[in-house]
Design a protein around this nucleic acid. Structure first.
Length: 419
DNA sequence: TCTGGGGTCCTAGGACCC
DNA sequence: TCTGGGGTCCTAGGACCC
C-alpha cells in the first residue's frame, strides 16, 4: 500500500525555511559595518553560539571557546547575544512567510515549515517562483538570507533546504527524489541520530536512498514507529502535517546542571534543590502549575536515572515539592556512584487559574498564603538575581564549588534563610 | 566536537482489571 | 485454585531535535 518514491509532479508542496547563521546575520543586518566581517555571537557564555559565514570560512566553529577565537582570529568581531532582537527578527520573518500562505509552523527561532499546496494559481507562479519571492522579500525587508527547500514532505523539504547552504533554493520533485537521496548519508536525514545510524550500518544501509528503497516489511521489522514514518516521508508520502502552532504553551519545563562527576551527596542534593527552585520560578512566571514532577540523575556513564512523582494537586511551589524531591533523591542516589548531572522537569502543566479548589477551607487558605509569599519572593529574585534568595537545602550551591571542567562556579554568599 | 541545556515523542514492561 | 488471554494505564528510560 505504501509505494511512492517516484511521484509525478507535486501533489503536495511543503516548504522549509532555514535562516543562515541567524544570530550573526541579524547582527550584521542591524549594524552594516559588520557586513563582510567574521562575526561571532556568544560572548556572555564564553563559547561560540553562532558564526557568520565569513567567520565559518576562517574556520571558526560553534562550541569553540571565545578565548580561542580571540587568540586565533583577532580580526573576529565578538558580540553578546541579544535574544529579544533575534526574536523580533524571527517574528517578522514568520509574518512575511504568512503573507504567502496561512499555514505556517514556527519550528524554532530560525526555522519554519509552510504548506504551499494549491497556491500556484493564487500567486500565479510556480512553487519555485513562490520560494524565490519569499527569499527576496526576507532579504529586502530584513537584510538576512535564508535557505529554502520545497518538496513533498517535511523530511524531504528539510533535505532540500539543507542542499545549498547560504541563500539556497532547492526543489525536490517526486521524480527526482532518488537523485537527492542517492549520496546523502543516512545520518543526515532529519530524525536519524547516531543510534539509528549505527543500526542502519549494521543492516547494510548507508545512504538515505538505501533506507528509502528498503522493503516495508524490512523497515517494520527492524525499526520503530518514528523511523517507519521517516521511511514513508522519504518516499514522498506525507505523515507529518504542517502544524499551525502558536508556540505559547509548554508541555514541560526543565532545569538541569552538569558538573565534573561527583559522589558528594550534599552537593548533589543542593544542586537538585536549586534546580527545583529555578524550574518552579520559571513555571510561576509562565503562570503554570505542574501535576507531575520528574527528577533525574545522570551517572558517569551518561545513564539517566529518573523518578516520576504524581502530585496530589497542581503546584509550582518548592515548599511543597522539596520533601518529595528529597525522597526521590534518596531512592535514586547510590552511595559511591558519581553523577555528572542532576535535573528537574515539571510536566502535565496547566494554567494557574484553571483548577477549582475543591479542598477544605483551611488548605485553600494556606495555598493562597503560599501564593502571596511566592509572589513576594519572585519579585525579590527578579530584582536581585536567582541566588540571592534560596531555600535552606539549596544553600551549599552558593558556596564556591568545583564545577565543570576545572572551572568554578562563583556565586555570592548571602542567602536569606527561609522556611 | 567525546557529550551544555531545554524541549518533544515513543516504547517496553509491570500492575491491574476483566 | 489455577490458567490464560486481552485491554488499559502508568513508569522509567531512550532517542532525537535545535
Amino acid at each position: 500500500m505504501a509505494q511512492p518514491l517516484n511521484i509525478h509532479g507535486f501533489p503536495q508542496a511543503i516548504l522549509h525555511l532555514d535562516a543562515n547563521a541567524f544570530f550573526a546575520s541579524v547582527e550584521q543586518a542591524v549594524n552594516p559595518e559588520l557586513k563582510g566581517k567574521p562575526v561571532v555571537v556568544g560572548k556572555e557564555r564564553g563559547i561560540v553560539t553562532a558564526v557568520s559565514y565569513e567567520g565559518k570560512a576562517l574556520g571558526i566553529k560553534r562550541g569553540m571557546t571565545i578565548a580561542e577565537v580571540k587568540r586565533r582570529f583577532p580580526q573576529a568581531v565578538i558580540l553578546e547575544s541579544d535574544y529579544e532582537k533575534y526574536a523580533l527578527f524571527s517574528q517578522r520573518m514568520f509574518e512575511i512567510l504568512r503573507g504567502f500562505t496561512p499555514i505556517v509552523e514556527e519550528y524554532s527561532i530560525d526555522e519554519a515549515f509552510a504548506d504551499l499546496k494549491g497556491l500556484r494559481r493564487y500567486h500565479r507562479a510556480s512553487y519555485e517562483e513562490i520560494g524565490y519571492r519569499i527569499k527576496e522579500t526576507i532579504k529586502k525587508e530584513l537584510g538576512i538570507t535564508v535557505s529554502v527547500g520545497i518538496s513533498l514532505t517535511k523530511v524531504l523539504a528539510k533535505i532540500a533546504s539543507n542542499w545549498i547552504k547560504p541563500d539556497g533554493l532547492t526543489l525536490i520533485s517526486g521524480r527526482e527524489i532518488h537523485h537527492y537521496l542517492e549520496k546523502l548519508p543516512i545520518s543526515e536525514v532529519w530524525g536519524i541520530g547516531p543510534q539509528t545510524e549505527a543500526l542502519c550500518h549494521k543492516l547494510g544501509i548507508y545512504t538515505a536512498l538505501d533506507f528509502a528503497r528498503a522493503k516495508e516489511e524490512f523497515i517494520k521489522k527492524h525499526f520503530t514507529k518514528p523511523h517507519y514514518e521517516i521511511w514513508l516521508e522519504l518516499r514522498g508520502i506525507q505523515v507529518y502535517p504542517v502544524l499551525e502552532t502558536f508556540k505559547n504553551s509548554y508541555r514541560s519545563l526543565s532545569k538541569s546542571i552538569s558538573f565534573t562527576p561527583t559522589a558528594d551527596k550534599e552537593f548533589l542534593l543542593s544542586q537538585s534543590a536549586f534546580n527545583l527552585e529555578q524550574v518552579c520560578f520559571k513555571a510561576r512566571r509562565y503562570g503554570l502549575l505542574a501535576k507531575k514532577l520528574i527528577y533525574f540523575l545522570k551517572d558517569e556513564e551518561f545513564k539517566v536515572h529518573s523518578i516520576e512523582i504524581n502530585l496530589p494537586y497542581p503546584t509550582a511551589y518548592p515548599k511543597e515539592l522539596l520533601p518529595l524531591l528529597r525522597k526521590a533523591f534518596e531512592n535514586l542516589f547510590y552511595e559511591g556512584i558519581s553523577y555528572r548531572q542532576v535535573g528537574v522537569i515539571l510536566t502535565d502543566l496547566s494554567p494557574k487559574r484553571s483548577f477549582q479548589l475543591t479542598l477544605f477551607e483551611k488548605s485553600s487558605q494556606s495555598i493562597e498564603m503560599k501564593e502571596k509569599l511566592y509572589e513576594a519572593l519572585d519579585s525579590i529574585i527578579l530584582k536581585y538575581g536567582r541566588t540571592f534568595l534560596t531555600h535552606g537545602v539549596s544553600l551549599p550551591v552558593t558556596k564556591e564549588k568545583p564545577l565543570y571542567k576545572g572551572k568554578s562556579l562563583k556565586i555570592p554568599l548571602l542567602p536569606i534563610h527561609l522556611l
